[in-house]
Amino acid sequence: MNKKMAEYIQQNNGEIIAKWQELMKNEKNERSFQMMPQDLMDQTSKEFADLMLSNLLESHQAYESRLNDFAEKVVRLGWSVTFVTKAIDHFSEVVFEGMEDAGLITQENFRAFFKEFNNWIIPIRDSTVATYSKTWERTVSLQKIALQELSASLIPVFDKVSVMPLVGTIDTERARLIMENLLEGVVNHRAEVVLLDITGVPVVDTMVAHHIIQAADAVRLVGAKCMLVGIRPEIAQTIVTLGINLNEFTTTSTLQRGVEQALAWTNRKIVEVEAE
């Protein structure tokens, strides 16, 4: 029966993919498939059909290789795991109904084919979901590491003056990374003034403020001054409401003002030079 199923899919591949695409487009809660360019949709649909067919014809190793490649692709395309399982169910539905219409599945062999379809679909659904989940977790982990590295670097802007732009939510793990990079950067760049720019931090609560205060204290211990810049009005209001004490900080609303203050601390200033 596996052979008959495989032959039917191979002989009617184009028609199956077309019907499957229509079912996928009708999934109203999922826009990722509907928003795809037609050429990308056709290519992805063919790869999916080949994946479903390979589970019937190819070795387990070859199928696993296809599955890993496809899982990485749909994660990049933004497919949810629910959408992936619907894709599998819709494909089997199209094939089953097509084989019924072609007279290959009859009342006499219905139960046998139904059992064979379950033996085909259930394992492929389980393995696909498992592979998708691993791929998604690995992707999220890599993205998190990349964000941490990008948003916790100390950047020298002038001699003795460095800036650390903070982006995104600051949790305990990120606070540890910020502290390490901050202290290492102060020593390596011989910074005397460090500006912590929180323009890109969406929320400053008690925990975030605690991490920032700890970082400033650590900077002072290695002989540098720390300034907090990028305090937006809503952040200032939150700090006051929560009763967070930032009295030991010099704070400014913008990075530009912070740089001007940092230069003053190092006995320098920005002056305009008239063109001759």
Rank of each mutant, 00 (worst) to 15 (best):
residue 214 Q to L: 15
residue 222 V to K: 09
residue 105 I to W: 07
residue 210 H to N: 14
residue 143 Q to E: 15
residue 218 A to N: 11
residue 224 A to P: 00
residue 150 L to S: 13
residue 249 F to P: 03
residue 53 L to I: 13
residue 123 P to A: 05
residue 55 N to H: 15
residue 50 D to F: 00
residue 260 E to T: 14
residue 206 T to Q: 07
residue 45 S to V: 09
residue 273 V to H: 10
residue 90 H to D: 05
residue 92 S to N: 13
residue 224 A to N: 00
residue 150 L to P: 09
residue 68 N to I: 15
residue 257 R to H: 11
residue 157 V to E: 03
residue 115 K to D: 03
residue 152 A to P: 01
residue 205 D to G: 10
residue 2 N to S: 05
residue 27 E to F: 14
residue 66 R to H: 12
residue 44 T to V: 12
residue 32 S to F: 15
residue 52 M to W: 05
residue 239 I to C: 01
residue 30 E to A: 15
residue 273 V to N: 13
residue 141 S to F: 07
residue 216 A to L: 11
residue 248 E to C: 03
residue 231 I to H: 00
residue 165 P to A: 13
residue 130 A to L: 10
residue 131 T to A: 08
residue 223 G to Y: 00
residue 82 T to H: 15
residue 71 A to L: 10
residue 230 G to R: 10
residue 178 I to Q: 03
residue 141 S to D: 04
residue 244 I to T: 05
residue 109 N to G: 01
residue 60 H to R: 14
residue 60 H to P: 05
residue 89 D to E: 14
residue 192 E to D: 03
residue 218 A to E: 10
residue 140 V to S: 09
residue 34 Q to S: 13
residue 56 L to C: 08
residue 98 G to W: 07
residue 242 L to G: 04
residue 66 R to E: 03
residue 263 L to A: 02
residue 47 E to V: 01
residue 90 H to N: 09
residue 186 V to F: 02
residue 227 M to Q: 08
residue 209 A to V: 04
residue 203 V to M: 04
residue 240 V to A: 07
residue 194 V to F: 01
residue 206 T to H: 07
residue 6 A to W: 05
residue 96 F to I: 04
residue 37 P to V: 08
residue 262 A to D: 00
residue 272 E to K: 06
residue 242 L to H: 02
residue 3 K to H: 14
residue 229 V to Q: 02
residue 19 K to M: 12
residue 8 Y to Q: 06
residue 99 M to W: 03
residue 198 I to Y: 00
residue 93 E to D: 12
residue 180 E to F: 05
residue 239 I to H: 01
residue 44 T to C: 10
residue 218 A to T: 06
residue 128 T to D: 01
residue 104 L to H: 05
residue 102 A to V: 13
residue 63 Y to R: 06
residue 198 I to H: 00
residue 124 I to L: 06
residue 235 I to C: 00
residue 185 G to L: 04
residue 197 D to V: 11
residue 141 S to R: 12
residue 184 E to A: 14
residue 184 E to V: 14
residue 147 L to T: 12
residue 249 F to L: 12
residue 197 D to L: 11
residue 213 I to Q: 11
residue 102 A to F: 13
residue 190 R to Y: 11
residue 237 Q to P: 08
